[in-house]
Design a protein around this nucleic acid. Structure first.
Lengths: 156, 156
DNA sequence: CTTGACCTTACCATCATGGGAAGCCTTATC
DNA sequence: GATAAGGCTTCCCATGATGGTAAGGTCAAG
């Protein structure tokens, strides 16, 4: 199987397959005389594993751990579960951060009449800060959510 | 005011202030004879604006638009509101994606007894896919959430 | 033998941020 | 006035996972 076919049947792009090989996440594929990478169904299964783990939001680093456990026949399911629970906790944190942003934005957007006039509570909040904002009293944006660095929350 | 003080009173790191200047998000600061950047309270206000917008998850590109509107005295609040609504929509999408991941992971983790034995439904799901997974019937992971590329959902 | 589809490597870009080095400037202390 | 500490400057590199592109080799069908 060439890389294109392995890509199609695993759902991992050829580019990423080569990348995963380069960083050592997967073993180096065999090669034809001409230098083409060759894949077996076992390799495709590995790639599918990676693809599914990515779909669950696991970082490549975590996937490395998961793969190690997968290939360790004497693993303890507790170890796998712990990785999953950490992943859940990480997702929870980021969801909460984004939810806080969304709540604040919703309050501001609700307070903005959105017509032809220039006056806008959204801009007012950005200029003066939430403390001085024309806040009806509902916005409970926590100081913590603002002082944290909101890492990685922009769309790529 | 030197860049260090401007950084402290705006909450934007010196590194980022220089970066924002380099990409044209903020005008080039004045300089002392020795080449040090000099900032006024007006500049700090601008930096605070940016900082707050970042805290709400806006990308630098969107902040550019917001700044343009802010400085446009004949702006229409509807334009500002629209940017905010787009931001809300984007956050909503990403929250939903992460929520879907979390739900799946929770089902899997719940099904994993987490003891010393190697058998683990989490690994089983990763290996065989959700269709073959030992799924009690509650997991409604949608095909869409898996086929989308889950962009930018890993922690930085 | 040509054409088109596929493969290879290598390099660049993303996005916002941090780290570090090498060197200049300012301020405070002795 | 010399010296040390700390702030500032620019420049380069790294992140993480992914896509794009370009230049060139290979394979299979017509």
């Amino acid at each position: 199987m060439n890389i294109g076919e392995a890509s199609k049947s695993s759902g991992v792009s050829a580019k990423m397959i080569r990348y995963y090989e380069s960083i050592g996440l997967i073993p180096a594929a065999g090669r034809t005389v001409a230098g083409y990478r060759v894949y077996t169904m076992t390799d495709v299964q590995l790639l599918r594993f990676i693809r599914r783990a990515r779909d669950l939001g696991f970082s490549v680093e975590k996937i490395e751990e998961l793969l190690a456990l997968w290939q360790d026949r004497s693993r303890q399911s507790a170890d796998v579960k712990q990785i999953a629970l950490e992943q859940i906790a990480g997702l929870e944190v980021r969801i909460r951060e984004m939810q806080a942003m969304m709540d604040t934005l919703r309050h501001l957007a609700d307070a903005c009449c959105g017509d032809h006039r220039p006056d806008c509570p959204i801009l007012a909040d950005l200029v003066n800060g939430p403390d001085q904002g024309s806040n009806g009293g509902q916005d409970e944006r926590t100081p913590a959510s603002r002082s944290e660095k909101a890492a990685g929350l922009q769309a790529h």
